[in-house]
């Protein structure tokens, strides 16, 4: 069903003039700076796409943002400053990784909390189960020998 997304992307793409993902002429001469630019642009969302970063996107706006990002870095911005520059204009929505703040505590800590709850429930279940049922008598030597042969056969 994911093709519906592509459909969406393509419909949107037809509304904007064509451009493509990272182009050679966009890249910075300085490899260290370019590497930083690539890393940042992987964390920024292409606003008109579904969960695609501006690094991957073919959208025109993504292209502009890639260029802008490189201009900022070339002008001496730190990574943080460059990201903040874009967030100031487009909001937290451009961050593929949502910030950790009270509104997102549930998002960020929910999975860990769930894991703890699930693990604790399983532990309680196993425990209670074993308390309510009496432990059977230990195996006799004969039974143990038979069991071992059986276990050997077992897959």
């Amino acid at each position: 069903m994911r093709f519906f997304l592509l459909l969406l992307a393509i419909l949107l793409a037809t509304l904007t003039p064509p451009a493509r993902a990272v182009e050679p002429n966009e890249m910075l001469k300085n490899p260290a700076l370019e590497a930083r630019a690539r890393a940042i642009s992987r964390e920024l969302r292409c606003l008109v796409c579904q969960n695609e970063s501006i690094d991957d996107s073919n959208a025109d706006l993504a292209h502009d943002l890639r260029l802008l990002l490189r201009q900022r870095l070339a002008a001496g911005d730190t990574d943080r400053q460059a990201i903040d520059f874009i967030v100031a204009r487009y909001g937290d929505f451009v961050l593929l990784q949502p910030p950790v703040e009270p509104a997102t505590y549930l998002l960020w800590f929910g999975p860990a909390a769930l894991l703890i709850v699930a693990a604790a429930s399983a532990a309680i279940f196993v425990n209670r189960r074993n308390r309510t049922l009496r432990e059977p008598a230990p195996l006799s030597a004969e039974e143990k020998r038979r069991l071992d042969t059986l276990l050997d056969e077992r897959y």
């Binding site: 949107l12 509304l15 904007t16 606003l47 008109v48 025109d60 706006l61 502009d64 943002l65 802008l68 204009r89 487009y90 909001g91």
Partner: peptide, 13 residues
């Protein structure tokens, strides 16, 4: 033409 002012406004489409 370059779309820079658009970005400064936060235009996305």
């Amino acid at each position: 033409e370059g779309g820079r002012t658009g970005i400064d406004f936060g235009v996305y489409g």
